[in-house]
Amino acid sequence: MRRVSSTFSRITLQAAPRVARFLFIIFIIGLALAALGGCGLRRGRPDVGGAHQSITLAGSTSVQPFAELLADEFMKSHPGIIVNVQGGGSSAGARAALTGVAQIGMLSRELEGEEKSLHRIVIARDAIAIVVHPSNPIDDLSVAQIRAIFAGEITNWSQVGGPHREIHVVSREEGSGTRGSFDEMIMGSAEVTPGAVVQDSNGAVRETVAGDPSAIGYLSLGLVDKRVKGVRISGVAPTVANVERGAYGIVRPFLFATRGRPGEAAQEFIDFALSRAGQRLLAAEGLVPVARD
């Protein structure tokens, strides 16, 4: 008797963890299945966040830093709402808004094609500055010269009155809002040379030009700082004042795009961006506010 019972207890003791582990695996598989099932159910249901509502913005890396600024200020005055700002690029932003992944898509160019079904809100305007290294003696170029440089027809700074040095063209990747606007407003039917160095953000273009005395690039005026020099275009300097006067021509809209009417929280954020406080914030960062009084 004694022997049997002791064997029995040993078996259960040994078996218990194994059974537990087995049950645990079943449990995990069950959870996974439940999660899979849940996915289908959750899709399309509006955000019900209880005390905290959250809105997501996604899109243009040109708009992103400004949207982050707006979001920080906005969350100070609206503690119940959390604003997430993500990058990805203008086209991704439009797609995110179309598919509902983000409540607000951010674009640094006009809506195109099927994107036109989105609700479009201009939150500011932004100029594109043509930048060179601060040590570069060139500080004025015509649109035709810029086009020829980026098309790879002018390849040496001496051809535009500078030192005898090869020009290193820095461009953005296809699909970028900044690239799209640049192509449209400067290049026209010409093409950016395939030999151009391609960087994937405004910041990377700025870093590249800041580090290379032979480089020329283009980026959002709001992101130009002391490490690069914005060239005058036929005598007109890239400044907010000149953009407001209409003298500086390379200007594009910064858009918020929503699918249909935005939700309550998203609408509040958009209203904040267009409010005097929001616009002043954007203007202080070098953007051109949209006239709205």
Partner: peptide
Amino acid sequence: GNATKIPSSILAPVRTLTSNIALEMGYAA
């Protein structure tokens, strides 16, 4: 450097297959 041109020297910028996908995926439609 990600230039879309067959490099003419080892000092020229170049784009690889993987970079091509990663660079443009976010934008592409």
